[in-house]
Amino acid sequence: MVNTFEETGEILRYRELLRNLVLRDVKIRYKRSALGFLWVMLDPLLMLLIFYAIFAGLFGRSVGQYPAYVMSGLIMWQFFSQGTKVASLAFLQNRNLINKIYLPKAIFPLSVVASSSVHFIFSLIPLFIIMLFSGAKLGLNLVLLPFVVGIVFVFSYGVALTVSTLAVFFHDVIYIYDVLLLGWMYLSAIFYPVSILPWKLQVLMSFNPLYHFISLFRASLYDPSLLTAGHIFSGVAFAVLSLLAGWIIYCRNRDRLIFYL
């Protein structure tokens, strides 16, 4: 408990570092390539092209607004998966610093998730363009978007804290998590409608946090029918549980990490 308050206060005190770490990520990622920041927009468009070419014939008719459906699923998935995947290395890659200077270590996974959300916000631009062309209309529900981004951020940070802490003790965690993400992606109804799943799997789907997040995201964009109490409640619950678990795991190991880095 004491740890919690102390560490939160320290992160606040080091907020300038957080800002600089995020800025660095964004700068380095897009400074060197010829098309620069355009890549953040091109990337989801190219992904969409691939998925659309393969799956539009299969699912195009049963899902309304198929391009918007796929693209929203894709960029929401990327937000979570890229953020937590990179964050799994947060302590290991910064071991030089952590070993030499006192810092609130939890700031490293936090900065990775924060950069990931910056990329997410930029990739909303191509999404809006696609929606414009495919005739999906933005509604008033768009005001929910910050809320959706917020709970995914909280959820991702919890997962990032867990994975990055465990990865220090067992390097295998990094690889296990990679495989886990691959399977998780196919189970998250990104490019197919949930209705094609057998009934039993559909029930299991409600235990997939990403399913709720993606549904809420779609609800805020173009499909008000997805805005259900179930999704909202589950989404918030998963986010809180994840943060709680991650924070406890991190705090209990905080002072031990240094001996394994």
Partner: peptide
């Protein structure tokens, strides 16, 4: 800026 913020500034 990065290094000074690492020192907590």
């Amino acid at each position: 800026f990065l290094n000074a913020s690492i020192l907590g500034f």
